[in-house]
Write a protein that binds this DNA or RNA. Structure first.
Lengths: 229, 229
DNA sequence: CAAGAATTGTGCGTGTGCGCAAATTTGCGT
DNA sequence: ACGCAAATTTGCGCACACGCACAATTCTTG
């Protein structure tokens, strides 16, 4: 009811997407990421090279997607699941910290690979942009834009901008945090010789998102006041 | 003392960059943007195609750069020039409105061309990312991070994150505003048949940036309080 | 003023992104 | 069960982004 449009189509689609991600990561780990052609990935996944490009627009995207998974959807769900009692800022910040802290499946070697190669780091950072639209919907929901089931792109809401701006700002802040994290960890890797998994990524995320808390809470107060009217 | 590093080198560099921008826009206007190969642009600017790619990584970037110019530097300068009396939020918002309202040189036909073609619209939207770093420096300056002349990437400041996050958020908000503006104007163009230059872009920018004002002012208050200590 | 260092323009080759149109698969109505 | 419409895959082809090695020009230092 939520995401299935026809059932079998979407299922097969996700299957091939999954196969491509897995193949890309596996090959990138076996040989270096520079010794992997897109033809190899396509062949390993059992599809045509052209089909591969229908799913991912770059080789790095596929590799990174194997690690990030469906983080964007999980973030949105996490925001929606927080009880209404906590403030919007806390809800958003903690939801993000949760989703970016839970290592889930990513093997440490995959993360090392990503932090090492610049192209992969960039692709990993670009991933944060994907959380913007789901997060927009989640925030709009919490702000109580009562105007129906528009999926975020319609112009029917009371204030179309606030949710979008806040979501975009949060995504940008997360990107800033990841950039900083990748820079420092990369530096420490170069210096120490052994990988330092993190300088406490949760704390860094909280510190980076903190400046946005006033904006989030102010928007929530505005929404409450307007709704009460 | 500000931007010149060696003098003649930078001068020639800006000259070729300018030549490439101008050639790209001129050719894109004469023929359609789809009938312009990068070889043509390079030839019109008198450089090799390879050199062209040293300056712009896509054909659309070059065309759009002819219109946007050095907007990023002007935004930063505008923020820095506001008197210290006005709040940070007002300073940033009005500076941005000024720079995005002043049409400057862009001919209306060039703007029409950009709003029409999707690829050019995307490139135009991506331009907003460029204001992030200059804006970071300007905001950091206003927040009075007293720790020396670091150009924004050093870690020597008191709070390295706030300025970066705020600048990134502002850039993201501007991007949201431009996306909305381009969508609606494109729709009205399709509907009306004649181009509608804007539905008051300044007001749209102000409305889109408004949700960030609490964050900007809160950061300023924090900085003041910390500095007084 | 001369030699060295650094930066920029250039040619070449490779891998890749993507538009287009035909072929195949899937969903749905009857 | 069958056929029509929509969506997806695939092959083809072209233009392009980018790494690498090298030549030319400019800045620096003795």
């Amino acid at each position: 009811m939520t995401t299935r449009r026809t059932g079998l189509r979407e299922q097969k689609k996700q299957a091939t997407r999954q196969a491509l991600r897995a193949a890309a990561l596996r090959l990138a780990l076996e040989r270096g990421p520079d010794n992997v052609r897109v033809d190899d990935i396509a062949e390993a996944a059992g599809v045509s090279p052209r089909t591969y490009n229908n799913y991912f627009s770059s080789r790095e995207q596929a590799i990174v997607a194997a690690v990030t998974g469906e983080r964007e959807a999980r973030v949105a769900a996490a925001v929606a699941d927080r009880p209404g009692g906590v403030g919007l800022a806390d809800a958003v910040i903690e939801a993000i910290v949760d989703q970016y802290t839970a290592p889930g499946e990513p093997g440490q070697d995959a993360l090392l690979l990503i932090t090492t190669r610049p192209a992969l780091r960039d692709a990993f950072i670009d991933t944060t942009a994907a959380i913007e639209h789901p997060l927009t919907d989640a925030i709009a929901e919490r702000l109580g834009d009562g105007a129906g089931a528009g999926d975020g792109d319609g112009d029917g809401e009371r204030d179309p901008h606030t949710a979008r701006v806040l979501a975009a700002s949060v995504a940008a802040a997360v990107r800033v945090a990841l950039e900083h994290w990748l820079r420092t960890t990369a530096a420490s890797v170069t210096a120490g010789g052994l990988v330092v998994p993190s300088g406490s990524l949760p704390d860094l995320l909280r510190a980076t998102l903190a400046p946005l808390a006033p904006a989030l809470d102010a928007a929530e107060q505005r929404a409450l006041r307007r709704r009460r009217r």
